[in-house]
Design a protein around this nucleic acid. Structure first.
Length: 569
RNA sequence: CGGGGUGUAGCGCAGCCUGGUAGCGCAACUGCUUUGGGAGCAGUGGGUCGGGAGUUCGAAUCUCUCCACCCCGACCA
């Protein structure tokens, strides 16, 4: 490809709303342009990268035995009503109405459509197991789209669905997909982790997320420093400590704490540490309200809380009025002592002694409070988000935290959809069986952004070779004036093309500095430069995007040198 | 959804408070010079100042209203 026949649209200045490196660099390199909030145009340059991701994903899915198909993005409401998700999915589901008043959704995912298809196509256990996939545009009406294509509303996803006669078969396919995903992210040369995850709104049991590690990631991963254990922090269990609460040494004392509405305020006012306090959160219960009691420095894990008996799911915090009515004070002064509603106490809060908490009276806190002596701790549970330094849930080592970008997610759905939608096959026993299902997603567009987050410097993008829009860039110095350079460059370009190398020849009549900067911004992995100087010596200049020094290569050897580099040499 | 902010040339911004008919840098176009790390000079084009309504002799500027976009929050009492 010659730049004169391509569309390069780099900019020196950055649009003001780009906050993270990948968003900034994708805009500056001209890979994407925003059409409207959370919706992006992919330019010819950006599309080349997108296609590279798709190519690797497609090859590995095919290798894993999955069959590619293509489903509609517009889906009838009836299917979603059948699965129960028309109302349940929430405002992220983009709904539409046609001229006849019939309702549709723009697909955020395709369990309903594939299950509807499978119940018509699959009749016998002899057709199983079977895995189908597609690479296609989805739409989720995100609360707050941000970071460019990292969290956009419209995005491209690879989604796969597997069908089985029993759970053992599902487990097998799940493991095959786990292996395929590992192969994909390895081939894309990304640093990633597979972690245990919550299966969330889609439902199901076993689940792993694949995260690309990056400081700008929105998710936290907890991993053990001495075992293979890794989990999304929302899943990681906070183990009960081995020690019981120390003996009480103080008596209950009531302190005026005017204007203190947070743990931080109270600590400052009473000159204590947050680890010596408990906080009391009031949420809606199945009947009335229920209090959740945590150590002052810990965070509530909503997923854990809403799975507990008595707590209403989805978790809903009580508002100020409900709390006033039930307890008689505002949110800043709640505490377990003499609390008139039931409570669940976090494991870590339950082993405190002589702690500080709200007095259930506005403007007052108690100190020296102790479990059993002052408050009966009836129900103790794991309520909090793990923190670095916690013991690993598998009993080996302690947990550390990393930030990650979720780029893949695999689930064992079980029979949730096949049962509600009656997707059954006849088994060997001649009876109808609802098919256990697996589903497996990869965020294609998000991978592009995640790869940049992990591979850039202050000059621009540094593409891993499998993702690069071009493999090599050929830069002629002052081709406009020098006939020798022009002829040598044109000749070499033709030879590179013949050799099957994906080369971008910058034949624009520009100053060298502009070309260098453009190509470093775009992140092309290998650069060769032809100039008068080199031609005199029969040499050409080579430099990898990751290097800071040039190498002189004899003109006659440049193609073999590049081929070796492109094969990872 | 709550709070805050911004809409002026393709991009980044000034002008608005104090009303007088729009400007700067980059980008684009033409010419000459320059040519190994985002060149110089000269010239050119490009704006319903987010939309609508109002006040006024006169509105980018003041008022009302609608819209779009961005940021923060939506457990941490």
């Amino acid at each position: 490809m010659k730049t004169s026949q391509f569309h390069l649209a780099t900019t020196r200045e950055t649009p003001a709303d780009a906050e993270i490196a990948s968003h900034r660099l994708m805009l500056r390199s001209g890979m994407i342009r925003k059409l409207t909030s959370g919706i992006y145009i992919w330019s010819p340059l950006g599309l080349r990268v997108l296609r590279k991701v798709e190519h690797v994903v497609r090859e590995e899915m095919n290798r894993a035995g999955a069959l590619e198909m293509l489903m509609p993005s517009v889906q009838p409401a009836e299917l979603w009503e059948e699965s129960g998700r028309w109302d349940q999915f929430g405002p992220q589901l983009l709904k539409m109405t046609d001229r006849n008043g019939r309702q549709y959704a723009f697909g955020p995912t395709h369990e309903e459509v594939i299950t509807d298809w499978a119940r018509q196509e699959l009749k016998s256990y002899k057709q199983l197991p079977a895995t189908f996939y597609q690479i296609q545009t989805k739409f989720r009406d995100e609360i707050r789209p941000r970071f460019g294509v990292m969290r956009s509303r419209e995005f491209i996803m690879k989604d796969a669905y597997s069908f089985h006669i029993d759970n053992a078969s599902l487990q097998q396919s799940y493991e095959i997909m786990h292996t395929a995903y590992t192969a994909i992210f390895t081939r894309l040369e990304l640093t990633f982790r597979a972690v245990q995850a919550d299966s969330g709104a889609i439902g199901g049991s076993q689940s792993h997320e694949f995260h690309v590690l990056a400081d700008s990631g929105e998710d936290f991963i907890a991993y053990s420093d001495s075992s293979e254990y890794a989990a999304n922090t929302e899943m990681a269990e906070a183990l009960p400590g081995l020690d019981a609460a120390p003996a009480a040494s103080a008596s209950v004392e009531k302190h005026p704490t005017p204007g203190c509405h947070s743990i931080e305020d109270v600590c400052k006012h009473l000159n204590i540490e947050a680890t010596q306090t408990v906080k009391t959160l009031v949420v809606e219960a199945n009947e009335g309200l229920i209090a959740l009691v945590l150590r002052g420095d810990h965070k509530l894990n909503e997923l854990k809380a809403e799975k507990l008996d008595g707590v209403k799911a989805p978790l809903q915090l009580a508002d100020e009025e409900q709390i006033k009515a039930a307890i008689g004070c505002g949110t800043g002064s709640l505490g377990p002592l003499d609390l008139p509603i039931p409570m669940i106490i976090d494991r870590s809060a339950a082993v405190l002694a002589d702690f500080v908490c709200g007095a259930n009276e506005d403007g007052f806190h108690n100190s020296g409070v102790n479990w059993q002596r002052d408050v009966t701790a009836t129900q103790i549970a794991d309520l909090r988000v793990v923190v670095a330094g916690d013991p690993s849930p598998d009993g080996k080592g302690t947990l550390s935290l990393l930030r990650g970008i979720e780029v893949g997610h695999i689930f064992q759905l079980g029979s949730k959809y096949s049962e509600s939608m009656n997707a059954v096959v006849l088994g060997e026993d001649g009876k109808a069986h609802a098919m256990p299902m697996g589903c497996y997603g990869i965020g294609i567009t998000r991978i592009v952004a995640a790869a940049i987050e992990q591979n850039h410097d202050d000059r621009g993008i540094i593409w891993p070779l499998p993702l690069a829009p071009f493999e090599v860039v050929l830069l002629p110095m002052n081709m406009k004036k020098s006939m020798r350079v022009r002829e040598a460059a044109e000749k070499l370009y033709a030879e590179l093309v013949d050799a099957g190398i994906d080369v971008l020849f910058d034949d624009r009549p520009l100053r060298p500095g502009v070309m260098f900067n453009d190509m470093e911004l775009i992140g092309i992995p290998h650069r060769i430069v032809i100039g008068e100087r080199g031609l005199d010596a029969g040499e050409i200049e080579y430099r990898a995007r990751t290097e800071s020094e040039n190498t002189q290569i004899p003109l006659t050897e440049i193609i073999s040198h590049l081929k070796q580099r492109l094969q990872g040499g």
